[in-house]
Amino acid sequence: MNAPSKDIHERVHDEIQARIDTLRSGAPATAPNGGAWTQDKVAKELAQLERDQDFLVAHWRTRPGGSLAADHLPMRALACGEPQTCAHVEDLAKKYCP
Rank of each mutant, 00 (worst) to 15 (best):
A58I: 05
T22A: 06
E10H: 14
V12R: 04
E90C: 09
I8K: 07
E82D: 01
Q84A: 10
Q53E: 15
T22K: 04
H72L: 12
Q39V: 04
V57C: 13
D71S: 13
T38R: 10
D54L: 14
H9S: 00
T38Q: 05
A29D: 09
D52M: 11
W37L: 12
L46F: 01
N33S: 05
T62V: 13
A29M: 15
D91Y: 14
A36T: 07
V12E: 07
L78H: 08
P98E: 02
H88I: 06
R11K: 14
R24P: 02
A58K: 09
P98A: 00
A18V: 00
D14G: 03
M1K: 15
A43F: 11
C97S: 05
K95V: 13
P28A: 10
Y96W: 12
G81I: 00
L92A: 00
E50V: 04
W60N: 10
I8R: 05
K41A: 14
N33A: 03
A18M: 08
W60E: 08
P74N: 10
T30H: 05
A77Q: 02
G66M: 11
M75S: 12
R24V: 10
H59N: 15
D91N: 11
T85Y: 06
T22H: 03
T62L: 09
K95S: 02
D21N: 00
H59R: 12
L73E: 14
G35R: 14
E10F: 09
G81F: 08
R61W: 13
Y96T: 02
T38V: 07
V42W: 03
P74F: 10
G81D: 03
D71E: 12
G26Q: 04
K41N: 11
E50D: 07
P4M: 03
Q84D: 08
V57K: 13
R51Q: 15
L68Y: 15
A3F: 09
R19C: 00
D7K: 01
H72V: 13
F55L: 15
H9F: 03
